[in-house]
Design a protein around this nucleic acid. Sequence first.
DNA 1: CAGATTAGTTAGCATAGCTAACTAAATTAC
DNA 2: GTAATTTAGTTAGCTATGCTAACTAATCTG
Lengths: 170, 170
Amino acid sequence: MAPVKHKSRPASEAFTAGTAAAHQAALVAAGSSPMEVADQLHSAAIHLLRRLRVRDRESGIGPAQLSALSVLVFSGPRSLGELADAEQVRPPTMSRIIAGLQCARLIRRQATEDGRRIRLTATAKGTKIMWEGRKRRVETLARALASLPDAEKERLREAIILLQQVIRNV
Amino acid sequence: MAPVKHKSRPASEAFTAGTAAAHQAALVAAGSSPMEVADQLHSAAIHLLRRLRVRDRESGIGPAQLSALSVLVFSGPRSLGELADAEQVRPPTMSRIIAGLQCARLIRRQATEDGRRIRLTATAKGTKIMWEGRKRRVETLARALASLPDAEKERLREAIILLQQVIRNV
DNA sequence: CAGATTAGTTAGCATAGCTAACTAAATTAC
DNA sequence: GTAATTTAGTTAGCTATGCTAACTAATCTG
């Protein structure tokens, strides 16, 4: 059945996170060395997002467009270049992503004083879709959290603060 | 500049996780309601994986191929259909992914008693690449964890166990 | 043994990454 | 003040990765 020839390198996938290597968790015995904690944390993050992500498909928008839109909705208007930086993609990629979003009337482009730059803003429709998606994801997770006793919920809450510190150092 | 026409629906992105909606964290005041904890946790997971993911690019393998390979390396041989299920991808998609992996000599395909099924196994080369990648990711995270005082490291470690329970319920 | 089911492939399309090469606007140099 | 450079974004063309529909081949069922 003659495998297809693949020559190029993979190219980065920018925002499409969560990717590979989620499968080793079961092999690593629970322990508290930094490497073991790191491994469990990594695995937990991957599995968490993989489960939550299915809800994003309900929005009917592709992942790259959804992510770019979320920047505009939750962090405010941006130029194309700023958005590309935020999403860790190249300008041509972002150019196409915003063309799709504009086509779907989820964002608007406006001229700025600097004639080279464009100002991208989420429309009311785009904002609505984004908040609905966030609500779906977070409700799904909150439902799972609710099964935890209050005391442990609190311990988890405190640990998230630690986690946020760690992430800033990665 | 005439936006391009986009007609089709987005199609799922299977394993390419982490996607959208990472950007609302700053808007949500720290709090301990289930929704708020869920929101912070979701955001933390996205940001964590986004930072770790850059290290995967060093492997020179695309994200979908890397993820499929990781199943074969860390969970053992699988048929194409089983691998597609594990990766939440349709069979034609997996068919192409494994063609690429086979081409790169990272996996091997073997016949089974059932003439319709194929048995996919990671090669030594594929296994090596996978473990190196895991090492890179976990080392990056372990370095960040090391900056935490021992007592807090322990609290985080305990919270990860809670987190793993929560994830099973999502 | 004929029809139905199951596993995988092929074909064709869409989204989403990239680099290279282009246009146009703003800034800098002289 | 104009020419060269720099900066912002677009266009073109490639690859990878999703999908569905339609196909082949093998197995199972009646």
